[in-house]
């Protein structure tokens, strides 16, 4: 069984994000980067399926990002993935989801696959689009926000649980399929020390757009990010003080009516 896991390098969720002065990106100095949290579930599920299917099953990681992304790729390899494709090209800054999906579709098509696992969304730009577009481009079914995944014994189809409002939805899908993973799907393993040692010898195929046969950024003109803006600062907080609570409430109501004009 050939399993593809899509990976993205994102700023650590514990890091405070600051927009750069030009509004073209974030300030990266001092920012720690991690594997997108939801992608960790995708890696783990890929490894579990490989272990279950056995034989010559293989997990290949596909990641698009700057040269620095090798560290998160190497972490996925240390967790147990077999090899990786790293798409790095200087012309790719802030690619939109259509661009990312177009390039990944090419890579995945070249690699071949039975199942693609990815995170349900990236925790940085929260687009949650790449897997949908990929499903369309590869002409395969897509199951999103998976919280349980079970492969049939003959590995021809899978049953997937999706957490929806008020309950779970069980979906049966044929293979090949792309599954976006949610928290609760599994408990991602740590990169073990022998795993880290072995990862050094695993192959990361680095590809530029030209290597993949693109003469320009695919889908570049469809949509683009105009500017990134910091959140507006919250207004000043005012505390209404009075000797007696009813007086404070009266004053609050007056302020809401006359100054804030919200009641």
């Amino acid at each position: 069984m050939k399993i593809i896991v899509l990976l993205k390098r994102v700023p650590d969720s514990e890091t405070k994000i600051l927009i750069n002065q030009e509004g073209t990106g974030i300030r990266e100095d001092g920012v720690k980067f991690i594997i997108n949290t939801y992608d960790e579930y995708a890696i783990e599920e890929g490894l579990l399926m490989k272990e279950k299917a056995g034989g010559d099953s293989k997990v290949t990681v596909v990641c698009m990002g700057s040269d620095e992304a090798t560290e998160v790729i190497r972490t996925a390899l240390a967790m147990g993935a077999d090899d990786a494709v790293h798409i790095a090209d200087a012309t790719l800054s802030n690619p939109g989801p259509f661009t990312t999906a177009s390039i990944m579709a090419k890579v995945i098509g070249d690699e071949g696959f039975d199942i693609i696992f990815c995170g349900k969304q990236a925790i940085d730009d929260d687009m949650a689009q790449v897997h949908c577009i990929l499903a369309e481009m590869l002409d395969i079914p897509q199951v999103s926000v998976a919280t349980a995944f079970e492969l049939s014994d003959d590995a021809a189809k899978a049953t997937v649980s999706r957490r929806i409002e008020g309950g779970d939805e069980k979906v049966e899908t044929s293979l090949p399929v792309i599954v976006s993973c949610d928290k609760g799907l599994n408990d991602p393993r740590y990169a073990s020390l022998p795993g880290i040692m072995k990862a050094k010898k695993k192959e990361i195929k680095k590809k530029s757009l030209a290597d993949l046969g693109f003469s320009e950024v695919p889908g570049g003109g469809r949509s683009r990010v105009l500017k990134w803006l910091p959140l507006p600062k919250g207004g000043e907080c005012r505390i209404v003080e009075a000797e007696e609570t009813p007086d404070a409430v009266r004053e609050l109501v007056r302020l809401l009516r006359e100054e804030a004009k919200v009641i």
Partner: peptide, 15 residues
């Protein structure tokens, strides 16, 4: 090195 940071991360996450 990349490898040292990976070990640090595993130890940190585990702890």
């Amino acid at each position: 090195t990349e490898e040292e940071r990976m070990i640090q991360k595993t130890a940190r996450d585990f702890a």
